[in-house]
Design a protein around this nucleic acid. Structure first.
Length: 318
RNA sequence: CGCGGGGUGGAGGAACGGCACCUCGUCGGGCUCAUAAUCCGAAGGUCCCGGUUCGAAUCCGGGCCCCGCAA
């Protein structure tokens, strides 16, 4: 394997799935700074949960900066640290904050974002979910130079990756992080040496991952995951995978009893119906398409634990 | 102490002071070349500890456990 240059790297990220990237950067270059989100209260007990990124960084004794948000003066601090540590590049992946314009401007060319689609397709916060939702056969990862406008930066490299017919968003994200971690060192080295040069995005191919329920917003909302029984079984099954592990596709007892739902679901007698309060939410974690019909596998009724579809029918379908 | 729902045979659910019921599974038997089909029969249950009551799955108090929202 060819020798990689001795680059000094900073990492901006929060997601637990970043760990492979951290490992990769740390073992191939000098990882000298990690920027992450402050600890949050989480769960029913509202206990403080430390991010895996924070644990990893403290464990390796690498300088850590925690941000609550980019507040006044925070960007300048980061720039100062880039100077102090003589940092060559900053890698930004699933950071959960928008990097301020001034930082993009001052450090332009040094900040590289890992985006989980083949840009310029699916700009925005939920690229993997929309790739699955749309039934795409493949998606991928794009390394782009961080620009003041979200996901509009010049592209260093794209890496295509197939979407299996069973893939959930969670699984695919994990995979794409791993691919990124694997390919990142060579790409950074190539960019550094000048072998890789950035290219502009094709304006004709731009698309965004707009929420169905919140106009002009690219995040996923719970309302987006409500199952529309007017859709085909294939589309619904894709939605179930796209919204796993969050927020999980859902419907209600009432909606399950609708004609539309019955025409999509498999194996239900017409004279039978679901009992229970109509407003109760039923989450569908996993489903198959069998003979053109939707066959749920794992479901969960509000307040209850997860169970399989057959058991649910035994109790609720009369 | 963020808000809320819930623990009933092996699984999923009814019953909400008065004989614990239903669907599925399990076991035995019948019918079948055979069967996840069908018929007959059987076993097996109220999370734990107190309290109220003639009587508690049900009401009250205290535990333990599960889950949704929120973040």
């Amino acid at each position: 394997m060819e020798k990689l240059p001795n680059l000094k790297i900073a990492f901006f990220g929060t997601s637990d799935r970043s760990l492979p990237i951290l490992d990769s950067l740390n073992s191939n270059f000098y990882l000298v700074l990690v920027v992450t989100k402050t600890d949050r209260k989480i769960g029913r007990k509202q206990t403080i949960k430390r991010t895996a990124v924070k644990d990893w960084t403290l464990d390796k004794n690498i300088p850590l900066v925690e941000l609550d948000k980019f507040k006044e003066g925070e960007a300048e601090k980061i720039v100062a640290l880039f100077r102090e540590y003589d940092i060559d590049y900053g890698i930004v992946a699933d950071f959960s904050y928008i990097v301020p314009k001034e930082l993009c401007a001052v450090l332009y060319g040094k900040l590289i974002n890992i985006h989980f689609s083949l840009l310029p397709k699916y700009r925005g916060a939920s690229p993997v979910q929309y790739a699955i939702l749309s039934g795409d056969k493949s998606t991928g990862v794009t390394l782009q130079l961080l620009n003041f406008k979200i996901d509009s930066g010049d592209i260093l490299q794209t890496i295509e990756y197939p979407i299996s017919s069973k893939a959930t968003s969670g699984e695919l994200y994990k995979k794409l992080f791993e691919i990124s971690a694997e390919k990142l060192p060579k790409i950074l080295a190539g960019y550094y040496s000048g072998d890789i040069r950035s290219i502009k995005q094709d304006p004709g191919l731009i698309s965004y991952t707009y929420s169905r329920s919140h106009n002009k917003n690219t995040f996923i909302y719970k309302e987006d995951a409500k199952i529309d029984w007017k859709n085909s079984s294939v589309e619904i099954e894709r939605a179930i995978r796209a919204f796993n592990p969050w927020p999980i596709a859902w419907t209600t007892i009432e909606d399950l009893n609708s004609q539309q739902a019955r025409s999509v679901l498999i194996g239900q007698g017409v004279n039978k119906k679901f009992i229970g309060e109509g407003h109760k939410i039923v989450k569908i974690y996993e489903a198959d398409v069998v003979e053109g019909k939707l066959k749920p596998i794992t479901i969960q009724l509000e307040g209850k634990t997860k169970t399989d579809w057959e058991s649910f029918l035994n109790g609720y379908y009369k």
